[in-house]
Design a protein around this nucleic acid. Structure first.
Lengths: 125, 125
DNA sequence: AAAACTGTATCAGTTAAGTAATACGGTTTG
DNA sequence: CAAACCGTATTACTTAACTGATACAGTTTT
């Protein structure tokens, strides 16, 4: 069963987006494995204090991406192949890093300072 | 006069937010200096192809932060003290980097790999 | 002074997010 | 079989974000 105990609702991003990313990153990290059962829409909605439709929206997106499978009546489960996992990991990482690089460049930061900043702040979180 | 020639409208973030960040990062980088005139609401809206109200919203935020000054009838101009500049630079950088670190952590990336990734992707953009 | 600019304010329209209630059919469990 | 769960679908409402159009008063420029 996929655990949401480490899930933290953060900034202004939509909840369903945060849920999608939580699953995606869990798969990328290897924390969430293929075959793992997902909490039902009703259970997770009660757990996170949101509407079941919000969970459904997130699960729907993940299913469209081929990362989970849903069968009417039964619990949904993760179904990410190793190829998908590696692909999504690479994509997530590059997207995140590129976004930071663009921001730092606009702030006049150089390559060396950027890398140093990442290492310095890594342990403070 | 503050130039928007390097401004590129990117992802799904609100335009007024992107404008605010563009100015903030320009000040942090030293590209935009105190005393520089800003394009008027109408001129910039025509330049970027958006509504004047969108520009007004961005300028209003910057004024509330004390980074620019507006006098009814006259052009707005940048008014960021060196202390403000350093403060905003530190804040922007840390916010951006911390956001990345949190994302990479969730994806199971280690500190060394993160720094290496930043350096590797730095020259590809 | 007149024209052309400027910032400011107000109202309206569209879209998306989030919540809510309800219903139906399939699967699992006792 | 029956109860309890599951996924799915539909409709409606509220709120905020974002954009758009217009009008008004002050400043600059000629």
């Amino acid at each position: 069963m996929v655990s949401f105990s480490t899930f933290v609702r953060s900034d202004g991003a939509p909840i369903y987006t945060q849920i999608v990313q939580f699953i995606q990153r869990g798969i990328a990290a290897g924390t969430i494995l293929s075959g793992d059962e997902l909490p039902s829409r009703r259970v997770l909605s009660a757990l996170l204090g949101v509407n079941p439709n919000t969970i459904q929206k997130a699960y729907r997106i993940l299913e469209d991406e081929g990362l989970i499978q849903s069968h009417s009546g039964a619990k949904s489960c993760v179904s990410a192949s190793p190829e998908q996992r590696e692909k999504i990991r690479e994509q997530l990482l590059c997207d995140d890093v590129r976004k930071l690089i663009q921001a730092l460049r606009q702030s006049g930061v150089e390559k060396a300072e950027a890398a140093a900043l990442v290492e310095r702040l890594w342990d403070e979180s």
